[in-house]
Amino acid sequence: MAFTKEEKNVLFIIIFAAIAGMFITLFFSYNARISLKQFEKNGKININTAPMETLDTLPGIGETIASRIVERREIKGNFKSVYELVEVKGMTKKRFEKIKPLLSVEDTEK
């Protein structure tokens, strides 16, 4: 299996990216940046008013669950508490605990 010069360059870049990425994750609090950066500016996400595209960006929440949240809101009305989210199909306890600190049922804009 002989790689061409270009393929070796690509392989080298991928290995470098992985090593550099681990370094950045360890020393620059990168994981916190992913979870909180998009919400930092706006405070918590109001699950009664956030559009699907915003709910979609919550960690662990894809388009399917985001659209189910919106659907539940439309059918049964506003959530009275963030804990009511567990009623949404696909919202496991683990997923909910991860996003709970980012949620609110009212506006908390800074």
Binding site: A17, A18, A20, G21, I24, T25, F28, Y30, N31, I34
Partner: peptide, 10 residues
């Protein structure tokens, strides 16, 4: 994937 995401971010 976040490891590569970190490099891309930088």
């Amino acid at each position: 994937a976040a490891v590569f995401g970190a490099t891309a971010w930088a």
